[in-house]
Write a protein that binds this DNA or RNA. Structure first.
Lengths: 115, 115, 115, 115
DNA sequence: GTGGTCTAGACCACC
DNA sequence: GTGGTCTAGACCACG
């Protein structure tokens, strides 16, 4: 995985994990890789992963069972909720920006179609 | 103006000025406010504004005349160029993200239409 | 039973058992459930229950007869002692905290009455 | 300041700061000591303070101005809100525990009066 | 082996 | 000088 410098690594990892969750990567038993495992895989310090996990826990997306690992919340709608939330936020953000540029919805749609 | 903590203030100011340029705010004589003026208005350290101006200069968007202030470049296509560039970048970024979420172009367009 | 993450599970189990003792749950023949039994009931690793029992033993609250199980100590005053101890500790802790908040005894009493 | 081993240091620092806020210690300009300053004063690693500050920020009690320090939220009722919240929580927790011990409100009030 | 905490020390952008 | 991030490495309780 490549990290950019514009965002802290732990933030990029958070996004990365959320997208994995949405794409059903941990759907088996909901278990996420251990802190150390993922740290090794991504070649970052375990503390950085820890921070990402802690953040994901406070976002109510995963939970941690003491000494047995971290798990995706067992909420059937979680994936849909996350997806909807991201879709909403990112689209809103995008449209707001376009509005500031004085570009209206029709123009945007045409532009997207052409891409 | 509200600044968020996730991006350096000077970057946020650059965006803010570019948008003002696109929206024709400085179209009269192309003159931008002085560093002090804008620093006072935005309640920001003058150094921060200075940095934004310097950056804008190196982006070839404004230029500075000694003892008389800073001006938007007198380039007829500048506004269009800037607009196109932002439109391109933001749209690409947005579509890339949607793709990662597994949302295709059709769905996006429908979603935008409905908003 | 729900466990929180802020305290070791075995500590939570100790409290849980002590409260059961105080409430006379094991008053018949003083016999506690077997380690396996309780482990199954609480969905916890037997080692964890074992640790709780060991701790309770060293607190002189229960004792273990080889090959026949664990029993609450046959001390008439035990329940009262335990109750008194918990009452004292918890109350002291509570009042100390309130003092730090600048809330005096009168205010506390009024507040409790109103609840 | 003395730390106990039953709770992480950063948690104890959080409590400590909240109590200081309630007691009006930072009432002048709302400014908290810098991370390094407090780390030196309490003889702990700056990262530990950082963690406490980050947590307090996500609890919406303080906010951070980039490169100029951390401040108590400028909310007139904050102190009262915090005080009320702690009073409520701690009292509820205390009474719940007493109930589990089979001690009723009257008994508690008498006990508190006598202390 | 697991997560949680802490230290020490470093570097950075920012103001 | 400020907060923010990251690394490296360590120790711990827990299960």
């Amino acid at each position: 995985m490549q990290f950019n410098n514009k965002q802290p690594i732990y933030m990029q990892i958070i996004e990365y994990i959320i997208i994995d969750i949405i794409n059903g990567k941990y759907i088996d038993n909901n278990k996420l890789p251990s802190v150390r495992e993922i740290a090794l895989a991504l070649q970052v310090n375990p503390n950085t992963i820890q921070k990402a996990y802690t953040e994901l826990e406070s976002l109510d997306i995963i939970y941690t069972k003491r000494n047995s690992g971290s798990f995706v919340k067992d909420d059937n709608n979680l994936i849909n909720k996350l997806k909807k939330e991201l879709l909403d936020n990112k689209t809103k953000e995008y449209l707001d920006y376009m509005e500031k540029l004085g570009i209206n919805k029709e123009e945007i749609i045409n532009y997207i179609k052409e891409m």
